[in-house]
């Protein structure tokens, strides 16, 4: 997608964003946090599965595609890769929708955080709110559709901060392993999180 058009697409349709959040809240009202979590995860998985598979000859080709936004895994966000395996999302792709919601509806409904607590307790500890569940599930499912030199790409979450400045970092016992795979130190992670929204890793075994 051309950069100019991509930027333009990121700026429009508050109606759809806000309506989508309310649609999810409707599901939360009816099915509770557990039902909403299932719905969010199937939503994200279904999206990834509807996108074309990818194969790359080597890691450099994949990184190039990732940073240019040509890979399915970076279709919805602008990323940069400070190391071979560390990926940084500068701006959360949900920021705009969240801003429109808070501007037009008011405070973000509690269910968005409650569902993240459920996800952190039952799936994987990495989500701040409902948006992270969609995003992180999508990344995992999208990574599974990509091979580099014949090996499937794997994804892991390190840290996320939402538009309202709530943060979620990987548990202490996981952090050294994840940082080692990312090729950055904890201090570098702290520095990165000052002006970026999400840090994650992609790797193959």
């Amino acid at each position: 997608m051309h950069e100019e058009r991509r930027a333009q697409l990121g700026q429009h349709n508050p109606f759809v964003d806000v309506a989508a959040y309310l649609f999810l809240e409707d599901i939360g009202d009816k099915q509770g946090a557990a039902g909403m979590n299932n719905y969010l995860m199937s939503l994200a998985t279904s999206l990834a599965k509807s996108m074309p598979k990818e194969e790359y000859l080597n890691w450099d080709d994949f990184l190039r595609s990732l940073e240019k936004g040509e890979s399915i895994i970076s279709s919805f966000e602008e990323v940069k890769c400070p190391t071979d395996n560390c990926v940084i999302t500068q701006t959360c792709p949900f920021t705009r929708g969240w801003q429109e919601y808070t501007k037009r509806i008011g405070e973000f409904a509690d269910i968005h955080k409650e569902v993240a607590e459920y996800y952190n307790a039952t799936v994987k500890p990495g989500a701040v709110d409902s948006q992270c569940i969609i995003h992180q599930t999508f990344r995992k499912a999208a990574a599974e559709r990509i091979t580099v030199a014949g090996k499937h790409v794997k994804y892991a979450q390190i840290e996320a901060v939402t538009p309202n400045a709530d943060e979620k970092r990987a548990p202490d016992e996981w952090l050294p392993i994840l940082l080692d795979k990312a090729g950055i130190t904890e201090t570098e992670l702290n520095m990165t999180m000052r002006n970026n929204d999400c840090v994650w890793i992609l790797y193959t075994d």
């Binding site: 349709n13 759809v16 279904s46 999206l47």
Partner: peptide
């Protein structure tokens, strides 16, 4: 992203 995800669910829905 959310909007595209919802569209991918129309068929399912």
């Amino acid at each position: 992203m959310l909007d595209v995800a919802l569209v991918s669910l129309i068929k399912n829905m």
